[in-house]
């Protein structure tokens, strides 16, 4: 083994810079977070004064009502955003697959929300949702659907769905690009064969196109799920987690615990729990990716 490593020493030179950066910015923080999760820390990050408290931070979290509230929010946020983004993106990719006049322009427009910053998107939608001067409220009132403009993001019941709409707005283009790329790889011959065999449009999609895209779909869904699980900017800027925690998800909650209330130990314990969940997701992610990596072991 050592001899083998030595024989390949030149190969490592290529990956060394990448690995070095990763080690500093991943391995060390992970170690540090796990370590800190067993301590009680005073505000202001005076870490000399931290005291060991064992699993106390973890029990605090798991017994708090906020934890379950935030977990439920995170679940709705992640699943809702992921599923709808994927379905909309896939459908748009299918609709754009056939050539028609203006396709390129339309595709470009649909991709723009994905490119612009989440901060800008948050402000745009905050303005659209504005409880006094928001355009949606005005349209609803104008059409006689509401007496006065609704309070989209200041109300406990509508805040989370409203934020999910914003998130989908930014995210469906990613699914669309991925699926468009995938659609290009569906062999034409197979579709023609299915046509000759008498399959209609839906059957061709279901029996040829969709199975062919299963790998891309898995990767796309996983990437979306991870990104959504890790979202921060949209809820943070638009509502800061409010009103009364109705739009807090794990990440915003952890951030607030750490940098808002300076409870570093508890925040670290939260991070460790998050880490465990992500490792589970990561297992599937890696499996899906390695399904994409069927290259022979060559020279």
């Amino acid at each position: 083994m050592l001899r083998k490593i030595w024989e390949h020493r030149a190969d490592y030179a290529y990956v060394l810079p990448a690995i070095a950066v990763m080690l500093v910015v991943i391995a060390y923080p992970i170690y540090y977070t796990i370590d800190l999760s067993f301590f009680n820390t005073p505000p202001g990050l005076q870490l000399r004064d931290k005291t060991f408290v064992g699993f106390n931070n973890y029990t605090t979290i798991l017994t708090s009502a906020v934890f379950w509230k935030v977990t439920w929010n995170t679940l709705i946020w992640t699943v809702g955003s992921t599923v709808i983004s994927f379905v909309l993106g896939f459908a748009a990719a299918l609709a754009l697959h056939r050539d028609f006049f203006g396709r390129g322009v339309l595709r470009a427009i649909l991709i723009i929300p994905w490119v612009i910053s989440a901060v800008a998107a948050s402000y745009i939608w905050k303005w659209i949702y504005h409880s006094d001067f928001g355009i949606i409220g005005a349209v609803l009132v104008g059409l006689g659907l509401a007496d006065r403009p609704p309070n989209f993001i200041d109300s406990v019941s509508t805040v989370l769905p409203s934020l999910i709409v914003v998130n989908i707005w930014r995210e469906f283009p990613f699914a669309m690009i991925m699926m468009m790329a995938g659609l290009q790889t569906v062999p034409d011959q197979l579709l023609r064969a299915a046509k000759v065999d008498g399959a209609n449009a839906w059957q061709r999609f279901w029996h040829v196109t969709f199975p062919h895209l299963s790998n891309v779909s898995t990767v796309t869904i996983l990437l979306l799920a991870v990104a959504n699980f890790n979202s921060f900017i949209i809820p943070w800027i638009m509502t800061g987690g409010g009103p009364s925690n109705a739009s807090h998800i794990w990440i915003t909650h952890i951030y607030e615990l750490a940098f808002g209330r300076q409870r570093w130990g508890v925040a670290s314990a939260y991070s460790v729990l998050l880490f465990i969940i992500l490792m589970t997701l990561g297992y599937f992610y890696v499996r899906a990716l390695s399904g994409n990596d069927r290259r022979d072991e060559g020279a």
Binding site: M1, K4, I5, H8, D11, Y12, Y14, V15, A18, I19, M22, V25, I26, Y28, P29, I30, Y32, T33, L36, L223, V226, F229, N230, F232, I251, I254, Y255, A258, F259, W264, A267, S268, S271, L274, F275, L278, M279, L281, G282, Y285, V286, L289, S290, E297, G298, A299
Partner: peptide, 27 residues
């Protein structure tokens, strides 16, 4: 190249994508 630990290192690099900024923020 195929060098010992190639797959392990590759997936370690990919795994970075899995973790939210917040986890790394404090450390």
């Amino acid at each position: 190249f195929t060098f010992p630990g190639r797959n392990f290192l590759f997936f370690t690099v990919l795994l970075r994508n899995m973790f939210p900024a917040v986890i790394f923020l404090v450390p």
